[in-house]
Amino acid sequence: MTLIRINGLRKSFQGREVIKGLDFSLETGKCIALLGPNGAGKTTTLKMLSGLMKPTGGEIAFSDAKKGEDIRHLIGYLPQYPVFYDWMTGLEFLNYVGKLAGLCSKEAKMRSLELLSLVGIDEAKNRRVGKYSGGMKQRLGIAQALIHRPKLLMLDEPVSALDPFGRREVLELLEGLKNSTTILFSTHILSDAEEVCDHILFLHDGTIVESGSMNELRDRHQQAKIDFIFRENPTEFLSIFTESNLTKSINSEGNKVSVLVDDVPAARNHFLKGISERNWPLTKFEISSMTLEDIFMKVVGK
């Protein structure tokens, strides 16, 4: 079932078009990652969906709301840099937004306590938010977005500001939330998207350059990838890959050379033969399928 449908969404700032016509829809119960490099328009898109920004053109239609109806009770939103009233405690803030969202005092209190333990800042509930660390604020931000059980949870870079432990915990939290709500989160970290999401939207330069489920994307971009790792920097060994017509594209970083090919057996034989003839210091050789990162690099055209 479609939860929200976006048609021709555009946004300009002082004549500069940042979002150049987005069309997509989100299915109920899915976890969707909005992926893209910095400046692609992820935050702007989320701000328009949350109603904080008015689109220059296009429309956003929720299946649960009529046109022009207030959709704010349907969404939970965590901005990239959440801000709170520093003089409130974590519990007070959740209580406050809970009551504003229409919960009665008793309900708000119960829900606040429940969420505080869900996001793991239970022991800090009576501390002023001003004294919270960045990671705790991020967790409180997720809790406040969930307080009124929104149909759509939108998180803007929820894990980018966290340390590895915090990132792991928040990703696990999202994994657990997947069953109860639709999640749309933006990130520029591909492995995070790969880990929790079942659907990907690639945003680049204000347009969606690719979208689909992980499996669809893999199928569509199915190209075998062969990684060669050398003991030293392989600049002088590149010739064998660039000269061969078996190579579709080549990407080298550090001591690693990744080659995309269509015909795996032929390429394997050709390259390995060449390498052993020349006696090059190959330390690792691996045939793998494309990761999200490879697909990303490919569609963005780098």
Binding site: L52, I75, Y77, V97, A101, Q144, H148
Partner: peptide, 13 residues
């Protein structure tokens, strides 16, 4: 200016 107004007003206020 601080952004807290946006946090509050994405709620149905």
């Amino acid at each position: 200016k601080s952004g807290v107004a946006a946090m509050i007003l994405v709620k149905p206020v």
